[in-house]
């Protein structure tokens, strides 16, 4: 479902003497349907960079990133938008929403975008918010004023509201208490059973042990330092 071939990444900092930083080369791996792969490596090894490249948020310098039959590294903006709408979900660490929009609408939006009827979409959104222990009194408020943990759970609800064939998870259990962590891990297991291919970053060791089928140490893709 997800296949990386020889992906590399450079950052060119034009306003800092045009410094070129090579951060990744030769990244290749495959994630099949129903499989969860955990990216590991020290802070700064490039886990988030790699995940952002898979999502199309960062531009790969070379190589191919296949999600189904779309190569994210070369796709047109509208192809990536269609891919994100239909196929590729992403739970980031930060919630980014339009001010003033109610939490339940934020969660239901990915379903509404793909033509799910309003009532069905909202029922699914309410169900997920309940499972993630967001008090019903907050559903009609904008999540911008919520606590960090609540925002993270709204983000997770939004990411799991649709059954994406491929899913990226950036620290989904960070800043969650034991009960909610358990719910999130169950959601991940359910997605795997449905056949979702998952790439995740988990600093939470026991969580990684439980849901990940395989680990990929990203530091192996670091360019060899020339002394």
């Amino acid at each position: 479902m997800i296949r990386l071939e020889n992906v590399s990444k450079t950052f060119t900092l034009h306003n800092q003497n045009s410094a070129v930083i090579q951060v990744m080369q030769g990244a290749s791996f495959t994630v099949t349907a129903g499989e969860c792969v955990a990216l590991t490596g020290n802070s700064g090894a490039g886990k988030s960079t790699l995940m952002r490249m898979i999502y199309g948020n960062y531009l790969a310098a070379s190589g191919a990133i296949w999600i189904g039959d779309t190569d994210v590294a070369k796709a047109q903006p509208r192809e990536i938008i269609a891919l994100r709408r239909e196929t590729l979900g992403y739970v980031s660490q930060f919630l980014r929403v339009v001010p003033r929009v109610a939490t339940v609408d934020v969660v239901a939006e990915p379903l509404l975008m793909t033509g799910t009827p309003f009532e069905t979409a909202h029922a699914k959104a309410r169900d997920l918010l309940t499972r993630l222990n967001i008090p019903q009194t907050l559903w009609d408020l904008s999540p911008m004023t919520f606590s960090g943990g609540e925002q993270q759970r709204v983000n997770i609800a939004r990411g799991f509201v649709r059954d994406y064939p491929a899913l990226l998870l950036d620290e989904p259990t960070a800043s969650l208490d034991a009960t909610n962590r358990e719910t999130v891990l169950t959601l991940i297991e359910e997605a795997k059973t449905r056949g979702t291919a998952i790439v995740g970053i988990f600093h939470d060791h026991p969580a990684r042990e439980r849901v990940a089928d395989r680990e990929i140490d990203v530091s192996q893709f670091s360019p060899k330092q020339v002394a």
Binding site: H14, N15, R52, G56, N57, Y58, L59, P77
Partner: peptide, 21 residues
């Protein structure tokens, strides 16, 4: 030119980098 979040989060051109920063 490109996908909005890609241009804003990983700008390639010197001017865009200056604008975003």
């Amino acid at each position: 030119a490109g996908l909005t979040d890609q241009v804003l989060d990983d700008p390639q051109h010197a001017y865009t980098q200056l604008l975003v920063s």
